[in-house]
Computed example of a mutant assay.
Amino acid sequence: MPQLDTSAWSITILSMVLALFIMFQLKVSKYKYPEIPEPKPLSSPKKPMPWEEKWTKVCSPLLLPQQ
């Protein structure tokens, strides 16, 4: 049974890693970073709840007769 020739594997793997590294660097270099990063506000503006926007009638419970 013939043995598998693995002499070229190291060159193939190294060239593949190098090519992937170069492609990744080119992809990252196209990204535009913001020049002046601005901090996000710590407190988000309060968003009204749906039930706060509508007017609802407040009904008091029926008063029990006094004893």
Rank of each mutant, 00 (worst) to 15 (best):
20 L>M: 09
41 P>R: 11
55 W>E: 14
56 T>W: 08
55 W>F: 15
38 E>G: 03
29 S>I: 01
14 L>M: 10
46 K>N: 02
17 V>F: 00
48 P>H: 02
54 K>T: 08
15 S>M: 01
26 L>R: 12
25 Q>G: 11
27 K>M: 13
51 W>Q: 12
66 Q>G: 01
64 L>P: 02
15 S>N: 10
25 Q>Y: 10
48 P>A: 03
16 M>F: 12
63 L>A: 11
11 I>C: 00
12 T>V: 09
16 M>R: 11
21 F>L: 08
9 W>Q: 03
35 E>Y: 03
34 P>G: 02
35 E>H: 04
30 K>M: 14
60 S>K: 15
29 S>Y: 07
31 Y>G: 04
43 S>N: 13
23 M>K: 05
5 D>T: 02
41 P>N: 12
66 Q>S: 15
20 L>A: 07
14 L>A: 07
12 T>Y: 03
30 K>I: 07
43 S>R: 11
50 P>W: 09
48 P>Q: 02
34 P>V: 04
38 E>V: 14
56 T>R: 15
49 M>A: 15
18 L>F: 08
45 P>W: 01
25 Q>P: 00
27 K>R: 15
66 Q>E: 14
59 C>A: 15
54 K>A: 11
6 T>W: 00
46 K>I: 02
13 I>T: 05
52 E>R: 01
18 L>K: 05
27 K>H: 11
50 P>V: 05
43 S>Q: 13
8 A>M: 09
6 T>M: 06
51 W>H: 14
34 P>T: 02
25 Q>M: 15
33 Y>K: 13
44 S>Y: 06
31 Y>E: 13
21 F>I: 03
14 L>C: 06
52 E>A: 06
50 P>S: 10
53 E>F: 03
24 F>V: 06
6 T>N: 05
58 V>E: 05
48 P>G: 00
20 L>V: 02
24 F>L: 13
66 Q>N: 14
26 L>C: 10
6 T>V: 07
13 I>F: 03
21 F>Q: 01
14 L>F: 01
8 A>L: 09
36 I>M: 09
4 L>D: 05
45 P>F: 03
57 K>C: 04
5 D>A: 08
58 V>L: 09
53 E>G: 01
31 Y>W: 15
45 P>H: 01
64 L>R: 11
30 K>E: 11
30 K>Y: 07
47 K>P: 00
62 L>D: 12
21 F>D: 04
26 L>K: 11
21 F>A: 09
26 L>D: 04
4 L>H: 05
